[in-house]
């Protein structure tokens, strides 16, 4: 059984169809990358997977671990092991990062029938993960993402992923806004989490990230459709030639 099966997914926002029939299958242990021009629907797909309710699913189905993902609330999807690293992480004043992380972990543990973790056990574990991402302890006592730099926000997303240990991680442009060193560190953090049980869907514009996190498959999303899929070499080709040839091919294949 595949970990994630997206079948003919169609999504609308307000009156516009953004995703026009997406098909995608991910098996445990695999890393897939999604590339595509601005506005093609990558984040929409990511947010729908994380069950954001403001997107209206008009067709298709999604099976996550064999279960109907579209019937799940965001928190259920998370508890079932789905994680989205946001392209634009949200600032939440008044809730400390450490408290947030522990609340999230305990919500997930509770769902899975595990005991809640108290601060005594939680903090040492958290410190380990911080070290892995070379993050400053001070970020724990600050409000979630509030006044974090762009790079700090992205690292904080990966920290959350490391704490929650999901089955499926969707990284939406986690590389954008990172300096060269940070990119390497974050990529190492992500790579450390690759395992035969875990799958990842990496949305990016840049081949650079894929040098570190080498994907099994690369998909190109244009105007709400996956117009091409291939191996890691496809990313190189795109880097070289841009989307224009693919776009024109896509238009030719299915005129709007």
């Amino acid at each position: 059984m595949s970990l994630l099966e997206i079948k003919n997914l169609k999504v609308r926002v307000e009156d516009r169809e953004i995703l026009k029939g997406i098909n995608l299958t991910l098996n445990a242990g695999e890393v897939h990358s999604i590339m595509g021009p601005n506005g093609s629907g990558k984040s929409t797909l990511a947010q729908v997977l994380a069950r954001r309710e403001s997107y209206q699913v008009t067709g298709g189905e999604i099976l996550f671990n064999g279960k109907d993902l579209l019937a799940m609330k965001p928190e259920e999807a998370a508890c079932e092991g789905l994680f989205l690293a946001f392209q634009y992480p949200v600032e939440i004043p008044g809730i400390s990062n450490a408290y947030f992380l522990r609340s999230a972990l305990n919500a997930v543990r509770k769902y899975r029938g595990q005991d809640e973790m108290d601060a005594m056990d939680f903090l040492p574990m958290l410190r380990e993960k911080l070290k892995l991402l070379e993050m400053d302890d001070k970020l724990l006592n600050r409000s979630v993402n509030e006044a974090f730099s762009g790079g700090e926000k992205k690292r904080n997303e990966i920290l959350q992923m490391a704490v929650l240990e999901p089955k499926l991680a969707i990284l939406d442009e986690t590389d954008s806004g990172l300096d060269i060193d940070a990119l390497r560190i974050v990529a190492q953090g992500v790579n450390a989490m690759r395992s035969p049980e875990r799958a990842m869907l990496v949305v990016t514009h840049y081949q650079r990230l894929l040098n570190y996190i080498v994907p099994d498959r690369v998909h190109v999303l244009v105007e709400g459709r996956i117009v091409r899929s291939g191996g890691p070499e496809l990313a190189l080709e795109l880097e070289d030639q841009g989307y224009s040839t693919i776009e024109s091919v896509a238009r030719g294949a299915s005129p709007a």
Binding site: R51, K73, E75, A78, C79, F83, V108, Y111, L164
Partner: peptide
Amino acid sequence: FYLRSRGID
């Protein structure tokens, strides 16, 4: 949504 996406009901 951000909080819920982390498992918090």
